[in-house]
Design a binder for these strands. Structure first.
Lengths: 212, 212
DNA sequence: CGCAATATTGATTAGTATCAACAGAAGTGG
DNA sequence: CCACTTCTGTTGATACTAATCAATATTGCG
């Protein structure tokens, strides 16, 4: 599993011990005292509303930031580890650490890329067909993995089907049916741990709305 | 129309002349050379993919930032004025302007609140029923307006129905039917320029998923 | 006033949520 | 090592919602 570092900025980040699957990096509602840079592993961000419905807001790979969603000084979502992760904490101590980052702009660029990812997910969610949303997710996730130097045809799915369905705005039954249809068409090979794209052009066509 | 300023930071922002409705503050694909702080008016952010489908990614009121969505140094969306707006530009000249902002943290807090708004919109989009999405938007927009000291029952709609439907992930026909249903139930009064909430508790119940 | 753009209303179809039953994997304890 | 339980995911039948296609109405503007 590759490890990614933020160039020139490791020294202002605080390296943490590895987090094991299922553990929380930070919790919604707690005082927001740090941003976290994911170096390895996969992290999901999620929030629960007052009715108790969970919403999965994102899956985060190495080189990405989590803990950026804050309201009135408290985290608006939780960061949960899906696959053993190492992260760097950037303490938001209002005393100059952030300044060093901002100065060199790498931090702001990470935030800006995060925004872009989010708006792409918005675009995906605004698709009405479940097939289009799964295909769009495969396309977009493949691109993210490729940027990390991984295989873009082999999408790891450390998250549960429930989490993925929630993230894609559909029920688990619908997700199961869509993956079933894609498998029957020979487009993908779905296992618990991976979604392997066998016919990239067919998937790309079905997720064409994600090509900016 | 109230004007909002970013405390202690006006001096690093560059005040622009007012933008009239329909004009672009910045364009998707152009070199991202600034962030923009909305002081007055309403701004929509949108992007068009290679198929030509437009996606409205947000509506932005005073005190909010736009131009944050960047990828590889270019804007990933466009900022279009819906209602005459004045904005402050923060040139991203890599020479220390941003540093002043980050130092006092107000800028990062604006970005964090933006993230939170976005995740709330994600939650709204993940609702399957169109009624829930309109109600959720009314709830959330009301709260944003209230923070600005405006009336949270009277939601101005300077955007077209097409834009609003697009933003809410439904067709204009569906939006029209939902507003029609809400009006028939006596929950709202819909005109072209405003959506007035007559029965706040009913709307809040229908948009209960938005209560964090 | 008349044209063009935008919005509403209607009928039909397609897709997904829901409810329910079943299958498989993972973990537990004898 | 194997029954047993539990959790997760799959498959099936039905109802309901929203997209689509089409027509009409309204608004805005020259």
């Amino acid at each position: 599993m590759p490890v990614v570092d933020l160039p020139d900025l490791q020294n202002v980040f605080v390296q943490s011990r590895p987090f094991t699957a299922g553990s929380y990096i930070y919790r919604a509602g707690a005082a927001a005292d740090a941003y976290y840079f994911v170096r390895s592993g996969v992290v999901k961000t999620c929030q629960t509303n007052s009715r108790g419905d969970e919403l999965v807001t994102g899956f985060h790979y190495p080189s990405e930031l989590v803990g950026c969603s804050q309201m009135d000084g408290v985290y608006a979502d939780s960061g949960v580890v899906l696959e053993t992760a190492t992260v760097c904490a950037l303490p938001d101590n209002h005393q100059g650490e952030l300044y060093k980052l901002s100065l060199n702009n790498a931090f702001l660029h990470l935030l800006a890329e995060r925004e872009t990812q989010t708006s792409l997910h918005q675009r995906n969610l605004s698709q009405t067909r479940a097939d289009a949303r799964l295909a769009g997710w495969l396309v977009q996730t493949g691109r993210r993995l490729q940027k990390l130097g991984w295989c873009q045809q082999r999408i790891p799915t450390p998250m549960s089907r429930t989490d993925l369905a929630n993230y894609l705005g559909m029920t688990i039954e619908s997700l199961s049916r869509v993956t079933g249809r894609f498998e029957a068409a020979g487009w993908i090979n779905a296992t618990r741990a991976h979604l392997e794209v066998l016919n990239p052009s067919a998937v790309a066509a079905a997720g064409a709305h994600m090509l900016l």
